[in-house]
Simulated scan of single mutants.
Amino acid sequence: MLLVLSDEHKEHLAFLPEVDSAVVGEFGRIAVEFLRKGSTPKIYEGAARKLNVSADTVQHGVEGLMYLLSESSKLMISEVDFQDSVLVLGFPEDLNRLLLQLYLDHRKEIRQILSELAPSLPHYHNLEWRLDVMLASRALRHQVKPTVSLKLHLESGGDHIARVLQTDPATLLHLIQELERALAEAKTNHCRRILRNIK
């Protein structure tokens, strides 16, 4: 799978061939550090003074490198695909090798950082249900409607959460039909093609 870079990202990375390979390596280290702790404008200003360029140019270069490394790590691009993705930028061969080495050195760490940044969503653990029906009552003159009570147990980061839901059987049947229709839609060729492109 090749990584497709927008024109804006290509423009941000166009600054890299103008600097020494040691500077590109330092930019890679800064990019990983920024993924860990967030960016600090002071670093951009210090590097800009040393390189005699604007702070925005340095910031765009580091952010472009950060995007290249994080997207490549997120998609677990192979070495060959990474080289082919970077080849489009038109960089010299030694810079392409340096970028590949940066990627190989930091991809596991970047994947770890990205997994920690992902939100922890609650997930299904257990479901209890009960059907409540009043069989007879002298006070009720109209038809009795049954109620379905659901107790949904969720886990979120080691915590257990319970949610109680109540509905009538007709609404529950409608919900089941909609979910079955959504599952059937997920199996269509059109949806599979979209999912392949997302991965």
Rank of each mutant, 00 (worst) to 15 (best):
L114T: 02
L114Y: 00
S115W: 05
E116I: 04
E116W: 11
E116N: 12
E116G: 05
L117P: 00
L117Q: 15
A118F: 07
A118S: 09
A118M: 09
P119F: 03
P119C: 02
S120H: 08
S120Y: 02
S120K: 13
L121G: 00
P122S: 03
P122N: 03
P122L: 01
H123K: 12
Y124R: 06
Y124E: 03
H125Q: 14
H125V: 10
H125L: 08
N126H: 12
N126P: 01
N126T: 07
L127Q: 08
L127P: 01
E128A: 09
E128P: 00
W129N: 04
W129G: 06
R130V: 04
R130T: 07
L131G: 01
L131Y: 08
D132E: 11
D132W: 03
V133P: 00
V133M: 09
V133Y: 15
M134G: 12
M134I: 11
M134N: 12
L135A: 10
L135I: 14
L135K: 13
A136C: 06
S137L: 06
S137R: 10
R138F: 08
L140K: 14
L140M: 13
R141F: 09
H142T: 15
H142V: 10
H142W: 07
H142I: 08
Q143W: 06
Q143A: 14
Q143L: 15
V144H: 06
V144L: 12
V144T: 14
P146T: 05
P146H: 01
P146L: 02
T147N: 04
V148T: 05
V148E: 03
S149P: 00
S149D: 12
S149H: 06
L150H: 03
K151V: 07
K151D: 11
K151A: 08
L152V: 10
H153T: 13
H153S: 09
L154P: 00
L154Y: 03
E155C: 03
E155Y: 03
S156V: 10
S156T: 10
G157D: 04
G158D: 06
G158L: 05
G158R: 06
G158N: 07
D159Q: 13
D159M: 07
H160I: 15
H160G: 07
H160S: 15
H160N: 14
I161F: 03
I161T: 05
A162V: 12
A162D: 08
R163Y: 08
V164M: 09
V164R: 12
L165K: 05
L165P: 02
L165M: 11
Q166R: 15
Q166F: 08
T167W: 02
D168K: 06
D168E: 15
D168W: 00
P169G: 05
P169R: 06
A170Q: 13
A170V: 14
A170I: 12
A170Y: 07
T171Y: 04
T171C: 06
T171E: 14
L172E: 00
L172Y: 01
L173D: 10
H174L: 14
H174N: 13
H174S: 14
L175Q: 08
L175H: 11
L175S: 09
I176K: 09
I176V: 13
I176T: 13
